[in-house]
Design a protein around this nucleic acid. Sequence first.
DNA 1: TTGTACGCGTTATCAC
DNA 2: GTGATAACGCGTACAA
Lengths: 356, 356
Amino acid sequence: MKINANVCERLRFSLIKKTTIKDIANELNISPSSVSRALSDEPGVSPSLRKEIVDAAERLNYIPNSSAKSLKTRKTQTVGLIVSDIRNPFFLDFMSGIETVLFPRGYKFIVCDIGEDLEKERIYIKWLLEHGVEGILSSPCRGEDGRNNSQLYKEAVRRNIPVVFYDRILEGMERISSVTLDNRQAILQGVLHLKENGHRKLGIVLHKKGIYTIEERRMGFVEACKMLDIEINTGWIIENAVDVERASLSLESVLRSDRRPDAIISTNQFLNEVIVATVRGMGLKIPDDLSIVGFDDHSMNELIDPPLTTIRQPVKDIGKIAATILLSEIDGTRGDKSKVVLKAELLQRESVSKII
Amino acid sequence: MKINANVCERLRFSLIKKTTIKDIANELNISPSSVSRALSDEPGVSPSLRKEIVDAAERLNYIPNSSAKSLKTRKTQTVGLIVSDIRNPFFLDFMSGIETVLFPRGYKFIVCDIGEDLEKERIYIKWLLEHGVEGILSSPCRGEDGRNNSQLYKEAVRRNIPVVFYDRILEGMERISSVTLDNRQAILQGVLHLKENGHRKLGIVLHKKGIYTIEERRMGFVEACKMLDIEINTGWIIENAVDVERASLSLESVLRSDRRPDAIISTNQFLNEVIVATVRGMGLKIPDDLSIVGFDDHSMNELIDPPLTTIRQPVKDIGKIAATILLSEIDGTRGDKSKVVLKAELLQRESVSKII
DNA sequence: TTGTACGCGTTATCAC
DNA sequence: GTGATAACGCGTACAA
């Protein structure tokens, strides 16, 4: 009879009441402490009792309450991932990379798409801190005027929440690890390749002004030209090509002038597409009329006509390394901050002509 | 000894001590409840005191502790997003879509990449439930043998955690809302377009067997052919094209036979690329030797040669709608479960030839 | 309007 | 090996 009532009760309440370690303790007539110990794989509980507890937990459909656990332990097994703009195909492989590192360690991640918006970045950082993430992976934003949220990142670090910058960094933050690309060397490879193929009149299309990677690529372009004795025509440096209209309009006007470049370097996958479309739209043949070196390697770059010669960055590795560093900083097993700089590789396909 | 321990504790915590509403209360010689009320924008505290409290919170760098809050309120302002394979470009626009809905409502999301792995899906659902997410968006997995995690999803619903399926569903789960594509009608459009252009010998390349969308597309193909009086050659239905090798090998052997199709329909972006690459590799001209209708529209489909005629699904809308439904179910303002089915559109470009 | 007291579910620190 | 008890930080009846 009593058993029956119990069963009914349980059935009735299974819709609402969540079972806690206390319930398990009552069921087994033991103390909550033992249950906690058993379920957390801590020592100090006999094998036989442990088995009983685990079985009861299973039977009662027990699901631990992480909020309560976090409140006590200050651990949430969660990290925050701040992305500059989630529509960038960069993030597919990148997220795949960090996931392969985080999952085996039991860490989840919260995705925060800031869409290149400083204010949104601010809000998300606040949320992450409130949420109790144990670490933050971020590709920080920077306004054209140089404004940024460095103070907030510092605040996170001060609270012992490690931050790892990937892809982009904020200057002057020595206490934050980073994983970036050697952007200058990346562009140098592109310029060198063009020079080796006889090109001397080079242009470059740059995405949003102020973004760390873009500024680096701009400077890399200038440096490379100087180093390789290539004359720089500032009119061929197209800046702030943030959307399709702007990018294609600027590019068109450059290509229509009498003195026009014979090769163009891109600075991200979005621009690769815009450049190819624009050039084709003008009726120019690639690479006969204009050579192109792309940046970022989407699998489809190989399928367009002609296959695009591209500067490829090891996106998945960037993700893996960033996540690995973050975890070790969470563990506290890392003293110094790491500043990892990876190299790009040039994928030679057929969008660069050999002249002379 | 005891004192010493205390001192140590103090020292350890001095660097990382977080300010709580209690600290603010002490600072201002008021009670914690007033602080709580003021900071949660609840009524019942005078404007002057409220201002003092807000200022003090700011000054002391107060950050609320969501774990404590969740423990009380059982709300985490977090939902789980289960994705079948994060490397699918589908998820770029999709996530962008859900973010635009969740962010204004103060909801964050945890991304779980299950990589078409049932066991991983199981683990992630467990984690999400433990974490206390208020809802789950999922594109559920299904093994070739039909195995799936429907029991776990039911468990979530039983615990009052609403689940919304997107892109894929699990049959026989009436109590779960879903947002999917009308896959059969999508394929029908492709078949119809081919027929209108004079094609009668149609093949289709299908991705992983068992996946809901793929099975639907397979059946849609068969249905459409029957409806339009097109003879089906089962040899031209290429199944389980899960990776590059398998897909291109099967396709090649079909295209090499004497009786070969004059048009091929693809079933996702990954296959679009494989098909184009394979066909080109065989030296066949598109669309003269073979017409192709792609599925899923990546921006680069327009740039390949020839521009790919494609069946496009409204990915971002799927995300927005799924997130909207989930939020309303969390709010409890929705009685019946919704089964939203969206239509695909055919983007006519140049990969289909007009014969006679 | 403000303050008191308790509990959310868990772990940690003691005793025994 | 096991149990009692006290936090963790917050919200919320209830009392004042």
